[in-house]
Simulated assay, not measured.
Amino acid sequence: MTPTITDAPDRAEAAALLHAVADPARLAVIRRLADSPACVCDLQEQVPIALSLLSYHLKVLRAADLVTSRRRGRWLDYSLTPDALERLHAALPAPPPRHPGPTAGAGEAATPQPYTAACPPQCADQIQ
């Protein structure tokens, strides 16, 4: 079951998580670590930025508890925390449920209908 974000503290946590991955370099690190753990040298090949800047981005991801590190000799290996992707998924709004229309068969999606319930009359004509 995917957790849902419903109250203010959860929304603040969701905003903090999304802010942590809002930078292209940090998002690239998350995507790379979703495949497998990696050392800094491997991450630097995937995210071609200065090592000091990469270290900063990793620090931000660690502070958000999305990434963890483990020392191996003089290298640090990074990996996603076990619940990182679930927490990021929960921070995003859920898609609206898909309901088959009256003519849609099993497994077929209904043709989307224009949304007009909350639109004033002058705008409803423009949507259709």
Rank of each mutant, 00 (worst) to 15 (best):
R11W: 10
R31K: 14
A94W: 08
A110Y: 02
M1E: 01
R74H: 12
P93G: 03
Q113D: 01
R74E: 13
R62T: 14
L33C: 00
P37W: 01
S36V: 03
V47T: 06
P3Q: 03
R71L: 11
A110E: 03
L18F: 01
A22K: 05
A15P: 02
A94E: 12
Q128L: 02
A22G: 07
I30Q: 02
L17T: 08
P37S: 01
L61V: 08
S52D: 11
A8L: 14
P95L: 02
A90Y: 05
Q44P: 04
L54P: 07
A63H: 14
L92H: 01
D10H: 10
R26F: 01
L53K: 13
R74W: 12
G105P: 00
P121A: 03
W75E: 13
T81L: 04
T111A: 03
P96K: 07
P93A: 02
A28W: 08
C119R: 15
E13W: 07
H89W: 03
Q46A: 15
T6L: 13
A15D: 07
A28H: 10
L92C: 03
A124Q: 06
A12V: 06
H99E: 04
R74F: 13
A28K: 08
R98L: 14
S36F: 00
I5W: 12
W75S: 14
A124C: 03
L66M: 10
Y78Q: 01
P100A: 15
A117P: 13
L53D: 10
D65Q: 15
A124R: 09
S52E: 09
R62E: 15
H89G: 05
L76V: 09
L92R: 04
P114I: 05
T81M: 06
A34Q: 00
A110M: 00
S69D: 10
L27M: 15
K59T: 15
P102N: 12
R71A: 06
L27K: 13
P102G: 09
D35A: 03
R98M: 10
L43P: 00
P114Q: 00
L43W: 09
I5V: 14
E108I: 07
A94P: 02
T2G: 03
I127W: 03
A124L: 04
A110P: 02
C119Y: 05
T111Q: 00
V40W: 15
R26W: 04
A64I: 11
I5Y: 09
P102A: 14
A91C: 04
Q46T: 12
A50Q: 11
P93S: 02
I5E: 10
L88F: 00
V21E: 04
Q122W: 04
